[in-house]
Amino acid sequence: MTKIVISSRSFSSGSLDLLAKLSTAGFTTKFVDSKHDLTELAQELPGAVAWIAGTSKITSEILNLAPNLKIIARYGVGFESVDLTEAKARGIIVTNTPGANSLAVAELTIGLTLNALRAISTSASQVRSSDWSVIRGNQLEGSIVGIIGFGRIGRILAAKFHALGCELWISDPFVDANEIKAAGYLAKSVSEIAANANVVSLNAPGDGAIVDKNWFTNSRMGQVIINSARAELVDESAVAEALKSGKLFAYAADTLQGEKNSSSSPLMAADIANKVTITAHLGAQTVAAIDLMGNMATENVLAVLAGKAPINPVN
Rank of each mutant, 00 (worst) to 15 (best):
M1W: 00
I4E: 10
S13I: 13
G14M: 08
G14W: 10
L19W: 06
K21D: 11
L22N: 09
A25W: 01
A25L: 02
G26S: 12
F27V: 00
T29H: 02
T29K: 04
V32R: 07
D33V: 10
S34C: 11
T39K: 14
E40Q: 15
L41E: 10
A42N: 12
Q43I: 09
E44V: 15
E44N: 09
E44W: 02
A48V: 04
V49S: 06
W51R: 09
S56F: 11
K57I: 12
I58L: 09
E61F: 04
L63F: 08
N64D: 15
N64L: 11
A66H: 02
N68E: 10
L69Y: 13
K70Y: 08
I71T: 06
G76R: 02
V77Y: 11
D83E: 11
D83N: 14
K88F: 01
K88L: 05
V94F: 03
V94M: 03
T97I: 12
T97C: 15
A100W: 10
A104C: 03
E107W: 02
G111E: 03
L112K: 10
T113Y: 08
L114N: 05
A116M: 10
R118V: 11
R118H: 15
T122N: 07
S123L: 06
Q126F: 07
R128A: 09
S129W: 05
S130L: 13
S130D: 14
D131S: 10
D131E: 13
R136M: 15
R136Q: 14
I144N: 11
G149H: 08
R152P: 03
H162T: 15
E167Q: 15
L168K: 08
I170C: 00
S171I: 00
D172W: 04
P173M: 09
K181T: 14
A183Y: 06
Y185E: 06
Y185V: 06
L186I: 14
L186T: 15
S191L: 09
S191F: 11
S191P: 00
E192W: 00
I193L: 02
A194Y: 13
A194F: 15
A195Q: 12
A197E: 04
V200T: 11
A204D: 08
G206M: 06
I210H: 00
V211P: 06
D212A: 04
K213V: 09
K213T: 12
W215P: 04
N218T: 13
R220E: 07
V224G: 02
E232N: 13
D235G: 01
E236H: 03
E236Y: 02
A240N: 13
E241V: 13
A242P: 02
S245V: 06
F249P: 00
Y251H: 05
D254K: 12
L267N: 08
M268T: 12
V276E: 07
V276H: 04
V276D: 01
V276C: 02
A280I: 08
L282K: 06
G283M: 12
T286N: 01
V287D: 12
G294R: 04
G294T: 07
G294S: 04
N300C: 05
N300S: 07
V301D: 11
V301I: 09
L302R: 01
V304N: 03
A309F: 10
N315P: 03
